[in-house]
Amino acid sequence: MESGAQRLNLKREVGLIGAVSFIAGTMIGSGIFISPQYVLSTIGSPGASLLVWACSGLIAMLGGLCYAELGTVISESGGEYIYMLRTAGRVVAFMFVFSFVAVMRPASATGIALSCAEYVVAPFFDGGTPPQVLVKCIAAVLILVLANVNCLSVRLATGIQVVSMVIKVLALLVIVLGGVAMVFQGNTDNFDVSFEGTNVGVSSIGIAFYQGLWSYDGWNTLNYLTEELKDPEVSLVPR
């Protein structure tokens, strides 16, 4: 009891496997399947494209390590909102969470849902462009279904996250192994002129990094449910 009111405590139902699946499942989204072509076309060469991906991964890793430490120091759910609330005050925290809820998160969820919906309807329109109304309706249904799942049960949401992560990892493995097989078959022409045609303009580099970082987006999501982790010190910062 605090000031005559009972404090709401969230159920700690997310273990280490669920936590890893939550981050991996969030990071391995539509971005990694869509962004590579835009990174390559924007930066202009395979070598520079790989460099952009490596640097983007390094930035995401450093950000993830910082958030892991923050999550153990301030062991409350809410992510950036709670960190701003505890350090910068209510006004800054409110401004952030308002823009996050009203603009940033809906825009991100909409983009991911539309990408997923396009893949869902593509097999039914072989060689043609599916109606945008249909794509948008399916995207809206996906958002509503997943929102309800997260509201109804943490365990169910975690289970779906684990299954989706496994499916996406398997899909990536098929792509990676296919690329490795092509290299062993002698398709190495792109490596002979790795950096030929690289666009060194500020806008090209910026857009390429934007696409790369968008694919890595999600490394901070576990901090939104810190209070639901069974053992935050283990799940956030494995020793």
Results as ranks from 00 to 15, higher is better:
residue 52 V to T: 09
residue 79 G to Y: 05
residue 186 G to E: 12
residue 42 T to E: 09
residue 200 V to Q: 10
residue 58 L to R: 02
residue 190 N to F: 12
residue 18 G to R: 04
residue 199 N to T: 09
residue 229 L to Y: 11
residue 113 A to R: 04
residue 68 A to Q: 07
residue 140 A to E: 01
residue 135 V to H: 04
residue 161 Q to H: 07
residue 79 G to F: 08
residue 50 L to Y: 04
residue 97 V to K: 07
residue 71 G to E: 03
residue 46 P to F: 06
residue 155 R to L: 07
residue 10 L to A: 08
residue 159 G to L: 05
residue 29 G to H: 01
residue 175 I to M: 11
residue 88 A to S: 12
residue 215 S to Q: 04
residue 119 Y to E: 01
residue 31 G to R: 00
residue 64 G to S: 11
residue 6 Q to K: 14
residue 239 R to C: 05
residue 136 K to M: 14
residue 43 I to Q: 00
residue 77 S to L: 12
residue 39 V to S: 02
residue 75 S to K: 14
residue 111 G to I: 06
residue 183 V to Q: 08
residue 208 A to V: 00
residue 222 L to C: 11
residue 5 A to Y: 14
residue 38 Y to K: 08
residue 102 A to N: 04
residue 129 T to H: 13
residue 166 V to Y: 01
residue 98 F to N: 08
residue 156 L to H: 09
residue 16 L to G: 02
residue 73 V to H: 10
residue 175 I to A: 06
residue 142 L to M: 10
residue 222 L to P: 01
residue 136 K to E: 15
residue 174 V to W: 04
residue 39 V to M: 08
residue 83 Y to F: 14
residue 50 L to M: 15
residue 63 G to W: 00
residue 104 M to E: 13
residue 10 L to C: 05
residue 195 F to R: 03
residue 72 T to W: 10
residue 130 P to K: 08
residue 18 G to N: 06
residue 51 L to I: 12
residue 94 F to C: 09
residue 154 V to G: 01
residue 77 S to I: 09
residue 196 E to I: 08
residue 62 L to A: 12
residue 144 L to Q: 15
residue 170 L to A: 15
residue 185 Q to C: 15
residue 232 P to M: 14
residue 173 L to Y: 00
residue 26 T to V: 09
residue 147 A to E: 03
residue 164 S to T: 13
